[in-house]
Amino acid sequence: MSTGGLCLQARYNQWMDERLYAVTASLPEAVRRRDLGAFFKPLHGTFNHILLADRLWIGRMTDHPCHFDSLDQELYRDFEQLRTQQRETDADLLHRVRALTAHDSLPASDYISLMTGQLKSLQLGTLLTHVFHHQTHYRGQITTLLSQLGADFGETGLIWMADVN
């Protein structure tokens, strides 16, 4: 993956997170916290998991690993604090990706899988691509839940992002 492609994914990630947090913030807290049947149960839990995974991968990428007890460990109970932390993490990811050169995409990051406990290794470009695909996967669950709740989140396609070029 080119660094330009990674920048596009980072910008799209930031754009979609802003939009989905805005729509979700308009819902009552009880709705955001209700078990809606997603993998991480409520909307809040799904947003929390995205942030937790982002931080986990950034830590691995920078050789400053984060420790979490589980993939559903609650980071922030307050939704606005969760939103603020995701906004800061998205900006950090975009900054890191913009700072990459083609050469930077080659080194590997070694880490211990939280799920299996096994040592793994990924090239930086592959690691970042995984991060963005992971976010897209869980935002897909969020959009499904929002749809079921009757919330309008608009278009989600990359081509609808204003500054796609």
Rank of each mutant, 00 (worst) to 15 (best):
R55V: 08
V97T: 14
D104A: 15
L94P: 14
P28S: 03
L119E: 11
A162C: 06
D152S: 15
D78I: 04
W160C: 12
T3W: 10
T156I: 12
G37T: 05
D63K: 08
R139E: 03
A10W: 07
V131T: 05
F40P: 00
L122D: 15
E74S: 11
L52E: 02
G125N: 08
G4E: 15
V23Q: 13
V131M: 06
I50G: 05
M115L: 14
D17R: 03
T101A: 11
S113F: 11
L100H: 07
Q123M: 12
D72C: 07
L20R: 07
L146P: 08
L146A: 09
G37I: 02
S105W: 07
Q148G: 15
I112K: 00
T89G: 11
Q148I: 09
E29T: 06
F47W: 05
V164G: 13
D35I: 08
V23C: 11
E18A: 12
Q81Y: 00
G37E: 03
S113H: 14
L43H: 02
T143W: 01
L43P: 13
L145N: 10
F153I: 07
T156W: 12
L128R: 00
L8D: 06
D104W: 10
N165E: 13
L36D: 02
A30R: 14
G5D: 15
L93E: 04
E74F: 01
D63L: 05
R11C: 12
Y111F: 15
A102I: 11
T129M: 06
Y12G: 11
D69V: 02
Y76K: 00
L145V: 11
H134G: 02
A22L: 11
Q81L: 08
R55T: 12
D69W: 03
F39W: 01
L75F: 01
F39S: 01
D110T: 12
T84N: 09
A10Y: 08
T24G: 04
G157A: 15
L119W: 13
M1D: 14
A38Q: 01
D110L: 03
L146S: 13
I142C: 08
P107K: 06
L94A: 13
L149D: 04
D54A: 08
S109I: 05
R60W: 03
R32M: 05
T89N: 11
G4M: 07
T143E: 02
R87Q: 15
E80V: 02
L8Q: 14
Q9H: 14
S109F: 02
L20M: 07
D90I: 03
D104S: 13
A38T: 00
T84I: 03
L122C: 10
Q148P: 12
L106I: 15
R34P: 06
Y12P: 12
G150P: 07
A10I: 01
L149H: 06
L27Y: 04
A91L: 04
H44G: 14
Q141H: 03
H49M: 09
F47H: 01
F40N: 00
T129G: 04
A25V: 10
V31L: 06
F79R: 00
L128E: 00
Q123K: 12
K120A: 09
H134E: 04
N165K: 14
V31W: 05
E80A: 05
R34H: 05
K120R: 14
